[in-house]
Computed example of a mutant assay.
Amino acid sequence: MSAFENRYWSNDGLKLHYRDYAGDPAVAPVICLPGLTRNARDFHDLACRIDGSRRVLAVNLRGRGGSEYARDPQSYQPACYVRDLQALIDDQALDRFVVIGTSLGGIVAMLLAGAGAPVAGAVLNDVGPDLEPAGLSRIRSYVGRGSSFPTWMHAARAVWETNAEVYPDWQIADWLAMAKRLYRLTSAGRIVLDYDLKIAEPFKLPPPDTPPDMWGALAALSGKPVLVVRGERSDVLSQRTASRMADALGTAELVTVPRVGHAPTLAEPEVVPAIDRLLAAAR
């Protein structure tokens, strides 16, 4: 299934990119939001599975993929991503949508709901209102560190070295596919990370005096179809937090993916039918 490469403008003048997969205009579309260092390519297989039954907008957050890099690296923060998404919602005149967010994308999804966006349902992939310090420390250890490779196999090996404990059952084809989602080929023939390395800058700041009320943001999804996905080996979303999320929402479904860490790809056999159930409920 092919996608149109579309763009819109942020409120601070950045040209931002999303992949637009056509679908039934009478059904609420899906907005897909990737993780911190990820991009819209992570959702291509999911969009192909949906296969025209509804529109899919796979977003590149600012500084990732085809979206422009921010002039101010301190804008690489969830509140700014929410404003960017609100600009997209207005640009496309979306009166309701389902949001699928992985890691950082799930944080943005909760904040969107908390800000009153017309969210009809949500998939929160390996993220919640409380994040585990061990996982955050691991992410800080690699985000913003540049790398360059002469071949895709070299890049795949680097991805394996970083993520072997996350996906212990993967084979070389899986690592190669992940490398091609995470990296891009430059005009000089080198393979580099497909994001602005300055997205790491906000991590150097002290935490805000008044952090956002993430449990309050999650509560805005009460009464709507919600799927919470957790990797069994996740060091970001604990089982305790995932269970608390499901209990707090009442109608949420919790799916745990065995032998996977942070974060599931959403192509796992436990997850695919769960997403189908959520989309059916959000029609």
Rank of each mutant, 00 (worst) to 15 (best):
T186C: 03
G189E: 10
K204H: 11
E201V: 15
T102Q: 03
D90K: 13
R140S: 13
L112M: 13
W152A: 02
W152L: 04
V119I: 15
P133A: 11
A179T: 08
R138D: 08
A155M: 08
L85V: 01
V108R: 02
L136N: 08
H154P: 02
F97V: 03
P206R: 06
F149K: 06
G189A: 12
T151E: 02
A179Y: 05
A177K: 10
A200S: 14
F203R: 09
P129N: 10
W160Q: 15
F97D: 00
V82Y: 09
F149S: 07
G146V: 07
L193P: 08
D174I: 09
V166F: 05
L111G: 07
D126P: 03
F203N: 13
I89K: 01
R145S: 08
E165R: 15
L205Q: 15
A177G: 13
P206G: 04
D91H: 15
W175Q: 06
W152D: 02
A155I: 07
L88I: 09
R96F: 02
A93V: 14
K198M: 03
Y167Q: 04
A122E: 00
L85G: 00
V159Y: 00
V108H: 02
A158G: 05
L176Q: 13
V108M: 04
R190V: 08
R181C: 14
Q92N: 10
Q92S: 11
V99H: 02
D169Q: 14
S137H: 10
V166M: 12
G121D: 09
K198R: 15
L88G: 05
D130I: 12
L182W: 15
R157P: 01
I100S: 00
D130E: 13
G105E: 01
I139M: 14
A164I: 11
P206W: 08
V99F: 05
I107G: 01
N125S: 10
W152E: 01
I139G: 05
S103W: 00
L205W: 10
D84H: 07
D130R: 12
L205R: 15
A134L: 11
G135F: 01
R181L: 12
D95I: 06
P168M: 02
R190T: 15
A113K: 05
F203T: 14
F97Q: 01
V159F: 03
S187K: 12
